[in-house]
């Protein structure tokens, strides 16, 4: 059995999301250093605010400013911050009920005193990020806040009373969407059958696998016969020559950097390699695009870089009879 292949795989893309009116007000407020909640039908104030009442599912929208100070309702000490988290030094995850709110907000608490300095009930205040764009990360984190009386609202900046700025939730230039980048790292392994297939490509051989039940040869093999639902294992070398069973003419220039040299139009085809019971696909070269046809006999042109054939070109043989490939379209 050949050793399985592995390679790093990074899946990374930005999600662009539009905001409802309540989310827009909340995130715009953070940009302006104001925290807003929303009032439910039964008078509770939800922070962070949502568009619909979580109990009654009624649409809600009455915005209420709350203080940038609050109380920890539960916490967890994170001694090894991970990528993307709010702080890169040890911190506490916290749920914080801000003064004036009835529900709690998830964020990080920068507690230089370590886990022994944090408890449920710890008083905290918002530490604003320097650059704010209208996102939950406009709150850089929370920080401990010594207040003689937790029921007294105090401005964390002036030290005076009344941290509220009197916002009605309306702002100039409100944010209407967020872009949330996501990145996940994997170590990809294609499994037994595909590893064997990829290894044989390195020797410029195309090796499929035969179903022990229906005897069909699958190229590339995926380890199972989709008709019979059994494992394939008998390796069968196919090709190198094959027949174009069907094709299309591509008029859109490739954007992937590996394919920038390919001029349009070009032909992309289903190719049944001799001995295979499933067509694979590849680009056809070495012939004007408008002369490619069903039944055209082709052979692989291997790339210096290894891997799959760069493209297939005509062999010059007579075209294959339709009857020989009609099941492989």
């Amino acid at each position: 059995m050949t050793e399985v292949l592995k390679a790093p795989l990074v899946v990374e893309f930005p999600f662009t999301r539009s905001l409802g009116p309540v989310q827009s007000a909340f995130l715009t407020g953070l940009r302006e250093r104001v925290v807003l909640g929303v009032r439910t039908g039964d008078g509770r104030v939800l922070v962070p605010p949502v568009e619909y009442d979580p109990v009654t599912s009624e649409e809600i929208g009455e915005l209420v400013e709350v203080a940038p100070t609050g109380t920890v309702t539960t916490w967890a000490w994170n001694h090894e911050p991970r990528r993307g988290q709010p702080l890169d030094t040890p911190f506490a995850w916290v749920l914080v009920r801000l003064d004036g709110a009835d529900t709690a907000l998830l964020h990080a608490l920068d507690a230089p005193g370590g886990p022994d300095s944090v408890r449920t009930g710890t008083r905290v205040r918002v530490r604003w990020a320097e650059d704010r764009s209208g996102a939950i990360t406009d709150i850089a984190c929370f920080e401990p806040y010594e207040s003689p009386n937790p029921h007294e609202l105090r401005d964390p900046y002036s030290g005076g009373a009344a941290a509220l700025v009197g916002s009605d939730g309306r702002f100039e230039d409100p944010v209407t969407g967020i872009v949330a980048p996501a990145r996940l790292d994997y170590t990809y392994s294609p499994g037994r059958a595909q590893s064997a297939y990829i290894r044989s490509l390195a020797d410029r051989r195309v090796v499929g696998e035969r179903c022990p039940s229906c005897r069909k040869v699958y190229v590339p093999p995926r380890g199972a016969c989709p008709t019979c639902g059994v494992a394939t294992s008998e390796q069968v070398e196919v090709g190198p020559r094959g027949t174009v069973t069907t094709y299309c003419i591509v008029n859109i220039k490739a954007t992937h950097t590996a394919n920038l040299d390919i001029e349009v139009p070009y032909v992309y085809a289903h190719i049944a390699l001799d001995g295979a019971d499933l067509a694979l696909h590849g680009r056809i070269g070495g012939i004007p695009y408008d002369q490619v046809r069903m039944g055209l006999r082709v052979e692989p042109v291997w790339s210096e870089a290894g891997g799959h054939p760069d493209h297939y070109r005509p062999t010059g043989e007579p075209d294959a009879d339709y009857e020989t490939y009609k099941e492989l379209l």
Binding site: F15, R17, L19, Q23, L27, P48, R82, R83, G84, Q85, P86, W93, L105, L106, H107, A108, A135, I136, T137, I178, A180, A182
Partner: peptide, 9 residues
């Protein structure tokens, strides 16, 4: 995705 996922908890 708005309030929680950007913090990667």
């Amino acid at each position: 995705p708005y309030y929680v996922a950007p913090l990667w908890p």
